[in-house]
Amino acid sequence: MEHDRRGPALPAARGPVSAAVAGYLRGAGPPPRVEDVAGARAYGDDLQLALYLCYELHYRGFADTDRDHEWDPDLLRVRAAMEQRFLAALYADTPGHTGLDDALAELLVEPVRGTGVSHYLRDEGELWQLREYAAQRSLYHLKEADPHAWVLPRLWGRAKAAMAAVEFDEYGGGRAERVHARLFADLMHDLGLDTTYGRYLDAASAEALATVNLMSLFGLHRELRGALVGHFAAVEITSSPGSRRLAEAMRRTGAGPAAEFFYDEHVEADAVHEQVVRHEVIAGLLEEEPQLAADVTFGIDATGHLEDRFGGRLLADWRAGRSSLRVPLDAQTEHIARIS
């Protein structure tokens, strides 16, 4: 039995399913049972954390867990049950657009008076809120573009070539210091956050976990390749204007040059990426497999739905004057100061 020495520590459980998954990974309990999944809410903390733990085994894993768990049939069985719950909820909650053209057209229109998180952070965000936002987003940005790399073997021709080109740009065009995940670590450093991979898993809300689980779900299933492409399109199309607002928020609060640069870079990069994704990845995919148009639309709608939930949760917490995190940042930072 090979154990991973590196990787983040397993987080605290948030209910019976995540407790069972974490216990099993630690070698301290029996495999989680499929029956237990039925009692967990689809978007709730327990199911989303348990699912996150299962998916993370395909990225970097956790310290002191058995490496063989990545392909453990018992774990895959319970993961499939959780995925079914998650997907069923997403299908039910995204009656969505009548067609792909409608879905794309809506993304390509900029609201004059937007009410999203990036508008809030630009106009009145304080440094502590930017730090919370970055801590929660770090679960994705420290593995930025990784979930999308899984789609490459499932694409062909124009779609594959274009997707690989965009991913190459995400990975810094061959330069380690320009890899977007690295640029985000630099942003975190400016904000006084710990850049260790997985550090803020305990702090992240269920809504934040769900946005990352969605990408892993779409990325790991060939069947959902159309949805993955839709997800990628939604992120890239909405990124430029959103990144501009976040860059302004970083400038206004004096967050630091790397914090500004991360979002400035995304304004420019994603203005190109969204063109390539629409004209080449989506168009190329549908040329080969026109029957996937509905899946691409679903991917777009599911992304919007979960991003809205995440944004809504952040704004509700902040407007009520409370932290959006499950574990205060300062408590984590003090903990880090003690151990380092």
Partner: peptide, 11 residues
């Protein structure tokens, strides 16, 4: 001279 998506329709 780089695009920043400012050409998009605003509503």
């Amino acid at each position: 001279p780089w695009c920043d998506t400012s050409h998009r329709e605003r509503v």
